[in-house]
Write a protein that binds this DNA or RNA. Structure first.
Lengths: 110, 110
DNA sequence: TCTTATACATAAGAAAATTATGTATATATT
DNA sequence: AATATATACATAATTTTCTTATGTATAAGA
């Protein structure tokens, strides 16, 4: 994912946020999108992505819809109602995390 | 540590940064300091802290010095030269992480 | 023909945490 | 005096989340 360990725990937030913007996306599309948005900084590996998607689906945050494009399989994921609510929570948690870390790392500005 | 999973992977950064500011600290002091700085938002658990300190020591980033205060044991940790250099790296990684996540979460500002 | 890209998946192992438990002393409360 | 809380360390079992490696299959490009 990156040389930095800080990304541990943020994959779910990333997935939910992308799906919140794009209505529906398939796994490979997510990896390419993240790579482009971060200019190659962040590469989502398949070993991390697919289990994460399956888990979110099992938790009822995502719905899946299978499609065949160019004779190749695609699994389109989209947010459920619960997933949309959880996206809001995750984004709040991210904002809170950044705020907290900045308080620790830059206490003079607190 | 917190209800948010985002803190996973940031404990080392937090420890190094605090030691970079305070010259020497002992474990319990670190937990109290973090709790105070974050107004209770972030509680470092002992099960996470002590193994992390031992690992940093084993890696040569921290030196330890045992003291007895009020008949109780304290282990003071301080940065080695290598540890000081690594602190700079970790803080750069944190800044980079925040930048990357904001690009993902708030692409309009990118 | 061979490599790269697209598209999914899982399994073994590592890393970093949580949760639970243990030891011991000092101080505050009932 | 007894009990609870605070101080101060530690580790073990388990869980979560990731990396790395591997597998299947089609399409496109060199």
């Amino acid at each position: 994912m990156s040389n930095s360990k800080l990304y541990k725990g943020s994959l779910t937030t990333i997935i939910l946020k992308l799906l919140n913007e794009h209505d529906k996306m398939y796994g490979y599309e997510i990896t390419q999108h993240v790579k482009a948005l971060t200019k190659g900084e962040l590469k989502i590996t398949e070993g991390a992505l697919y289990p994460a998607l399956h888990k979110l689906e099992a938790e009822g945050l995502l719905d899946v819809e299978v499609a065949k494009v160019d004779n190749r399989l695609r699994k389109y994921y989209k947010l459920t109602e619960t997933g949309t609510k959880e996206t809001v929570n995750k984004l709040e948690e991210l904002a809170e995390y950044i705020k907290t870390m900045q308080a620790l790392v830059n206490p003079k500005l607190a």
